[in-house]
Amino acid sequence: MTRLLRSRWTFWVLVAAALCLPLVANIVEFPYLVRVGGVVGLFMLLSLGLNFTLGYVGLFDLGFIAFYAIGAYTTAIAMKHHVPAPVALLLAVLVTVAARAALGVTILRLRGDYLAIVTMGFGEIARLTINNLDALTNGPKGMQVRSWRPLAFLAKDPNVQFYLLIAAAVALGAAASRRLEDSRVGRAWVAIREDEVAARLSGIPVQRYMLLAFTVSAVFAGLAGGLFAMWEQFVTPESFVFWESTLIVSIVVLGGMGSIAGVLLGALILAGLPPLMQATLSTEWINYRYLLFGLILVLVTLFRPQGLLPSSRREAELNS
């Protein structure tokens, strides 16, 4: 199973399937599907990012959404100042990476539970700061983002345009993760998770590599945030509450920590099912989605802690 999931053939099949989604939506006259696809894609990006810190290195990060917010708001503010869109996107990534690196340098000597709490605290600080700095961010009222239609030649519908952009980003992100996984850096990261002391005594500069994973994850968050801002054309602090961070953590846990395929599947389920249910079932159901999601978290942890599609290593770790 693992070999099938990791083969290049599978990758291209999935890319093709993803590209077909807008066509399918058109045929079944369900344009909302494209929106859902976009949202799922954004969460896939975010989860792929968190996979570096939580999945590979095992750092319990509960404030990742803050960097999504930083990416989104950087883009919004840049666009407001007439920065061309692609540059705004690049800026989003750079600022997010810088902020993440700064945080990492400060807090990465903490472990386990402490790290979880501090990252959660920082997530809240970020949200509250965005909320309170009215002059810069327009506070709780939110900011409009200037329009950008990059793929207008491909499709009229901006949802489709951004869906394709996001899908491309996810494909790139998954490929990048795969390549890093199977390299000296990837091995070092997993070694740190398995036994930090042994890793250090094998010559790995643990602190530096944790910071590296931390920073790499920010690239994904910043990119996702920028795309989000440009697509929705509106950002508000309410999109970046603590529960979004737990959603991303849940996706990584549900899917299988350190498993790219698992993380993607997890995002498909946890970020895709609720809006689909909302659209197709009665409105009562959507209120149950968080309840369901909490239950899933508990049940999966209890009965299948290795996740849905565990990386082969993780499976071995938890089955022993």
Binding site: E194, L201, G203
Partner: peptide, 13 residues
């Protein structure tokens, strides 16, 4: 380089 009193291998590698 060193080894440890209680073996510290990366068990799942």
């Amino acid at each position: 380089a060193r080894t440890f009193q209680n073996i510290r291998l990366f068990q799942d590698m």
